[in-house]
């Protein structure tokens, strides 16, 4: 379904979705901006998150989560979409802007200024957590019951 460029795009959109507040901060820090028209003003809504019966079976509706979305078009014609977790109008707008700029010659600057940093921060945070989980890994030994074996 997804060809290579859209696979990359999927990755950066997912990254932005997970940390919209930080994405907006880094975009401001990197001075990212470009004239654009909002196709869809930042809008807060929900999505219904689904699980699977018994982890592998049919789908069921688990509960909703909040999501904010935004779409815009740059003067160059590039259209950017942001779908981010939580209620983050600024974050959704930043995500849409970054998504649009990544389709222009600005891409390397956006990649270095925002995406690479986000990715590194996320990886470090995940590794810390994984390390802490690993520190709680146990070996249980079964004791013999009732007998002096």
């Amino acid at each position: 379904m997804a060809d290579a460029p859209s696979e990359n795009r999927r990755r950066w959109m997912g990254l932005l979705a997970r940390s919209p507040a930080r994405a907006a901060e880094l975009a401001a820090e990197a001075g990212l901006d470009a004239p654009h028209t909002l196709l869809r003003h930042p809008e807060i809504g929900s999505v219904m998150v689904r699980g699977r019966v018994g982890a592998t079976g049919g789908a069921f509706n688990l509960g909703e989560m909040t999501v904010t979305r935004c779409s815009l078009r740059l003067a160059s014609g590039a259209v950017g979409h942001g779908y981010v977790q939580g209620r983050h109008r600024e974050g959704a707008r930043a995500a849409a802007l970054i998504d649009a700029l990544m389709q222009t010659p600005e891409a390397p600057r956006v990649e270095a200024g925002v995406l690479a940093r986000l990715r590194a921060e996320e990886a470090a945070c995940r590794a810390r957590r994984a390390g802490k989980a690993a520190a709680t890994k146990v070996e249980f030994f079964t004791m013999t019951r009732g007998e002096n074996a």
Partner: peptide, 11 residues
Amino acid sequence: TLPRFGYTAPV
């Protein structure tokens, strides 16, 4: 009060 944007794929 929230508009529903859709259903996700099963996690």
